[in-house]
Structure formats: structure tokens, C-alpha cells
Design a protein around this nucleic acid. Structure first.
Lengths: 397, 397
DNA sequence: ATGAGTTTGTTGTTTATTACAACAAACTCA
DNA sequence: TGAGTTTGTTGTAATAAACAACAAACTCAT
């Protein structure tokens, strides 16, 4: 499909920008690589790669090492690494905490903090807390540090272009211009997106979805079920950024409602709470949950899981028919179904979707831990830099 | 998202290829335009556009007219038109007929034919019929005609890259390498895709979806319900080309089955047949159907339509949550719901999806008639040419 | 009609960027 | 230790777009 996406005529300068951008993204996603590998990957001439890398190095974005350890024949190629001196901030407001971090362009988490967030904290207050933390950290960073930007991840409906949080039930926020609120306090470029979508994107770039151009992610937590889709290597955001709300897909005539009040949706039918209740457990982690499920012999649990697997399979079937992805990632408590119900799940999927859409599908668990989401959120702050490596407004720390 | 899609390093020659491709697509989609408009649209220098257009004209792809009728101030800009001497063939095998056509690069349908297709005709026979017709037409074309390629559209599961028809129920075909079958008979590049997806793409390029980057299409005919999605200006095909099978989305616990045997799907709940039966009508066209519905006072029809609107709204809600498109196109007999049930439909949609995903949505009828699909199918034959205007293997007629 | 004002076509020159060629450098291996 | 191989580096060539200048073709006011 070569419809006009938004491409326009390209000049010589644009050509260089494209090549710089591609080389920089190679370095960023590979973290550590060599000049000769970049030469092979780009298909550009050795001397051209030299020029490109030199100008990236001059800007402080990459570091060319003297030699890379290897044992191949021929002169060893110079190592190329993403600079740790270029950083992006990640801001993740959540139910009870404000999770903050500094992430290096090499993908390392340099610092992070968890500030408690009282219920009812306003966006105004939360953004001030984040701004203050960022300013304090900024002072402690080495003088040569360059700041690329700030990424914010929130659970809810986010209008990505304008940076508004339309509704974030777990935070009790609505209709807030959060991007503006934060950016005017810290004078840095801020981007904001839905957390599930960012997770999806992060799995594709750094996690289990590496190398896949078409993927789906479903993630279940206590208060909801979200998702994301990658099509042709790009996260699907839609017109305003509300795409990927797979939790609210209605798949049943049943009347039980999800956290948004819509009946019969995936989020209404597949609930962590219901499993916890059946187990008679309290507030436990996913890991603990999986242990309990594994050791349980409860018939009632069996029934609940059967029912949930049925509906999860149905929803996945719908999504496969729509997207025909290469890989499906189940994260959060949904890992449970990969761990203990994979066969049943696959049966449900195949009985409820066209066989073709599922025939080459890979189903995997998501990457454990919250580090991936933090890196993925910081990624928002790197996007502008990668798109335009030499002109993007990098700020001195 | 600037993940590595499939971009690679770009040379000066690639730069020219990109610009040629962009200019050519501009001319193709606008059909008739002027040099100065291309200059504005591309942002390239006047002299550069001159060079680009000259080399396209030398290859016989565009025609630069002496003058364009206008009444603006200043020297009039030269008109630029897509050449009608460049053509693509469209092949559309259907239930009872083989629809064939020659489409000019300017979007005009030059010739078309409908050959009867007996039930049970094999892919081998059908491809021979198509090949024979193409060879005959080829002889009648002016000597300077250049053939870009052949596009095939079929209803069913099409593995687009390999060109296999995995299953086409209405034709009774399965597991057929149709692309290979046809291409070896005519020695022309052949591409094949799902008809609903092509319709969607055609609506975006030439029809009601013009200018939209995110759109959805649902199309209902007698034997089934298909769809397509455009994300970031590109048709979503997925891993193998099976994406967009919205008819087989399961949205209900009910057990009535669709034409593929899956229960409770959109295709099972919203059926043209059921409306026809309620009306007591026989084999009628969509236009006749709409007239009958408009004049009917039947309570039974009322009930059937209410029920179908409910499920259609539910399915649309699911899709809006997934894709957040700018525009939704309802085509085939589904136009009915835009004509007579739009308010109810919108109510159903909003009660079953997040309000945000639908707030800026445009709902429209599809473009009437089969011409659009023919043009869209021929488009498959133009894709290679547009991607690489100077090197693509154009064949003399 | 006529000339000022405006926009586009065309051509020669300049600038930017990558490719190419040649050689030096750094490694492996026999 | 030297042949073979691959990479780094540098100077030059090739390619493509931008720029500048002028001619051409039109509108509009006088």
C-alpha cells in the first residue's frame, strides 16, 4: 500500500536526516553494536557510515569504542554504543504511588523512585511532585548529561496528540491537560500515552516481541484489562489515541459490567478479583497468585478458570480475525492462562475464529516486572531525538 | 513510533526513487493536477519537480499538457495527467461470474467484461478464462500501451504474500496457488487480495474515505460480511493477509452460526437473508431492498431490524475500541442501517463502547456500484509501479 | 492597448550527500 | 613472519536537490 501517508518530497538534507535517524535507532535498540554491523544493516558505504557516526558522536549521542572484543578474521570493527549521558525521564502516576525514573539512551535505568500518592491527589499536585523530583535529580546529573524529553504513562483514555488525560478511573482524574501541566513546569518536551499501549510497544522493541511487525498484547491487572496492537511495526493509536482498548470489547450477552460500566465485555468476564475471591485470598502479587492456583485443587476455581478461559479465548479470537498478528503477548495476571490453561485457550481460540488467522500464532507471557514499562515510557522522551538526531532540542541538565 | 519498520540506509538514488514515487502517486490519486500544485505539495524546488516530471514523462507514465485552464494571476502552470496508456488488469472471480477489466493509470475503466462462471468451476479453468481474455484484450490495445500488472480480488482467506487462496467458500475453492496459476499463463506480475480489504483501500484512496488515515469498512452481501481497516494510511493485512475478517468476530453467546460455522458472530447475527425472508422477497438488489424496507410497515421487520442494529452496534463498538478510526464506512446491504437506523445505531454504539473512541466518528455509506472495487483491484497492479516508477518491469502490450 | 505585477518554465551553477577507489591499519591463521 | 582478510580513513567522483537569474505567460488597472 503506497497511499500517501504523510510523506512529502525529500531533499538532500532530509536524506541525511533519514540515515542519521536510522543509524541512531539501530544503536539505540541494539544498545551495543559495531560500525561494520551498521554498515551491513544499512547497506550504506563504509565511508558514509563513518560520517554519520562521527556527527552523532560529535553531538554526544553515541560513543565509538576503540575496539570491540571479537575473534573474527580481519581488522576488528569499532564498537558503537548509545550514550548513557543522554537521558529521558519517565513519569508513571498510579493508584497509590507516583513512579519516577531516569532512563539512559542505552536503555539502562539510572535512578528511580516511588513517591506515595494519596487517593484524591489532583493532577496539579501530582505534576508538581513529578516536576520537583525531576528538577532535583537534574541537579545531581553529571554536567555533560543531555535531556531528551519526558514520557508519561497513565491507565485510561489519553488523547495523545494534545496530551490530555480524558479519563483515568484508577487515579480519579478526568479532562486534564496533563502534558501542558507538566511541560510548563519543567520546560522540557513531554509526551503522554496509555500505559498498556506503551507496554505493548516496549515488548515489541525490547521484550518478547522483538523483530515482530504485527503483535497484540493483553494485560490484566486488578482494576482493569488493557491492550495494545502493533501493525506494520507501529503502535496503533487511532485518530486520537484511544485505540487498543481491548478490555471494553463486548463479547457476550451477559449483563455483568466492567469497570467502565459496559456489560458483557472482556474486562467484565475475565477478572482477577473473581479468581482471588474464589481462592479466598486477599491482596497478593501475581507471583503469589500463580503459586496458589498451581497448588489449588478447588473445583470451584476450576470452574471459574474454565469460564474465564472461554471468554478470553473468544476475545482473542475476535482480535486475531481483526489483526492476524504474528505474536500474542499475555501480561499481568493473564499470564496465568499461558501457564495453566494454554491448551484450553488454544482450543477456545480455534473454535471461535477462522483457523487461518491463528495458524502461525505465537502465544507468550509478557516480560515480568515494571522495568520494561519504565523503559517504554521513557521511550516517549526519546522519540523526537531519534526522528531528528541533530536538530531536536536537547537540553543540558 | 519510530521502530525500525523495514527502512534501511538511503542513497542518493533512493532519494530520487522516493521523490519520483511520491510525485507519481500524487498524479495518480489526483488524476489531473498541475506542476505548481505538485511543487507546493512536495515542498521541492520548481526545478527539481521539472526534472522529476520530465523523467516520468519520458517513461510514458505522465502527460504534461501545454496549459491548464485557470484564471489565476501569473503564468499558468502546466497540467499534469496520469497516462491512460499505462494500464492494469483486474480479475474478480465471483459466485456466478468472472468479472474482468482494464483500468487506466488515470483511474478510468477502459474495458470490462462479465463472463459467466458455472458453479464448480475450478481455479485452473477460471484462471485460463481470465488469461485468455487478457491476451485477447492485449491485442486490441494501442501499440504504445504499457501494462503495469494484474490484480485479483476474491472473497475469502487470501495469503497475500504467496498469493494463495486458502479458502473461498462462495467459489468453492481452497488451498489454491491462484497467483502462480495466473501469472505463469500471462507472464505479468500478479497480486491478489481479499475483496473487502481492497474495497476498504479503494474507499480510502478514491471514495468516501479520501484523506483519512484511520478508517474502517464493513460490507455485507448475501453470502457474508467482510471488512477492512486502514491504520496510519495503510491497509491492515496482518502476518499473512487474513486481517479484517470482522464478519467472524464473536460478539454474542447465541448459537446461530455464520457461513463459516462459528456461532454468535456478527455475520451470524446480521444477515441480509433474514431481512429478505421477513419481507417475503426473493432475489433482489440492494436498491430494491432499501425501497421495500422504506415502504414497509411490518412490525416483524421492525423487530428484525432492531435486533440486527443492536448487534451491528455492538460489533462496531468493539471495533471502535480497537481501532479508534476517524471514519466508518458501511457498504453493501449494511447501508440500510445508515439510511434507516442511524440514530439507533449510534445509541447502541455509545452504550457499548468507551465514549471517547466514538466522539469524532463519521459514519457514512459506501460508494455505490462495483466500479470502485474494480479500480481498487487494478490498484494492486499499479503498486509496484508507484513504488519504483523507473525500474518496475512494465510490459509492452 | 499597454505596462506593472505576478507566477511559472527553464537553464546554468552551487551545495549537500553518498559512492567509489586506494591505501593504511589491525587482526587471524598457517 | 607473512599471506589473507576485514575495517578505518582519506581524497575524489557521481548524483541529486537547491538556488539564482532570466524569460515566458498570464491578470489587472489605467
Amino acid at each position: 500500500m503506497s497511499a500517501e501517508s504523510k510523506q512529502t518530497g525529500r531533499s538532500n538534507t532530509d536524506l541525511r536526516k533519514l540515515n542519521l535517524s536510522y543509524v541512531l535507532s539501530q544503536v539505540h535498540y541494539a544498545n551495543s553494536t559495531t560500525r561494520s554491523e551498521i554498515t551491513k544493516a544499512t547497506g550504506l558505504n563504509r565511508s558514509t557510515v563513518l560520517t554519520l557516526l562521527d556527527s552523532l558522536e560529535k553531538r554526544g549521542l553515541v560513543i565509538q569504542g576503540s575496539k570491540s572484543d571479537h575473534s573474527d578474521i580481519g581488522r576488528p570493527s569499532m564498537s558503537v554504543n548509545a550514550s548513557q549521558s543522554v537521558v529521558s525521564f519517565a513519569v508513571l502516576p498510579r493508584l497509590n504511588e507516583l513512579n519516577l525514573g531516569v532512563v539512559g539512551f542505552d536503555g539502562s535505568i539510572i535512578t528511580q523512585a516511588r513517591l506515595p500518592l494519596k487517593t484524591g491527589t489532583t493532577p496539579e499536585t501530582a505534576s508538581s511532585m513529578a516536576a520537583e523530583w525531576i528538577e532535583n535529580i537534574r541537579k545531581t546529573l553529571p554536567a555533560e548529561t543531555l535531556i531528551s524529553g519526558v514520557g508519561v504513562a497513565a491507565a485510561g483514555a489519553i488523547k495523545t496528540l494534545s496530551g490530555e488525560i480524558r479519563l483515568a478511573p484508577s487515579l480519579g482524574w478526568s479532562e486534564t491537560a496533563f502534558k501542558e501541566l507538566l511541560s510548563e513546569k519543567i520546560q522540557l518536551p513531554v509526551a503522554i500515552d496509555n500505559d498498556a499501549g506503551l507496554w505493548c510497544s516496549a515488548e515489541q522493541k525490547f521484550g518478547v516481541g522483538r523483530g515482530h511487525q504485527h503483535m497484540l498484547l493483553l494485560i490484566g491487572v486488578n482494576g482493569g484489562l488493557g491492550g495494545g496492537a502493533v501493525v506494520n511495526g507501529q503502535l496503533v493509536r487511532g485518530q486520537d489515541g484511544y485505540a487498543g482498548e481491548f478490555g471494553h470489547m463486548r463479547i457476550s450477552d451477559k449483563t455483568q459490567k466492567d469497570y467502565s460500566g459496559i456489560p458483557g465485555t472482556l474486562e467484565a468476564m475475565v477478572r482477577r478479583e473473581d479468581i482471588i475471591k474464589t481462592l479466598g485470598a486477599g491482596s497478593i502479587s501475581d507471583a503469589q497468585l500463580f503459586e496458589l492456583v498451581e497448588s489449588s485443587k478447588s473445583k470451584k476455581l476450576e470452574a471459574v478458570l474454565n469460564e474465564q478461559t472461554k471468554y478470553l479465548g473468544r476475545a482473542i479470537g475476535v482480535l486475531l480475525n481483526a489483526f492476524n498478528p504474528e505474536i500474542l503477548v499475555l501480561a499481568g495476571f493473564l499470564e496465568l492462562f499461558v501457564n495453566f490453561r494454554k491448551e484450553q485457550l488454544i482450543r477456545e481460540i480455534s473454535s471461535q475464529s477462522l483457523p487461518f488467522a491463528a495458524e502461525n500464532l505465537i502465544i507468550v507471557r509478557g516480560t515480568r516486572g515494571n522495568d520494561l514499562l519504565m523503559v517504554g515510557t521513557a521511550e516517549l522522551g526519546f522519540e523526537g531525538l531519534i526522528r531528528n538526531p541533530l536538530k531536536y532540542p536537547l537540553t543540558q541538565a
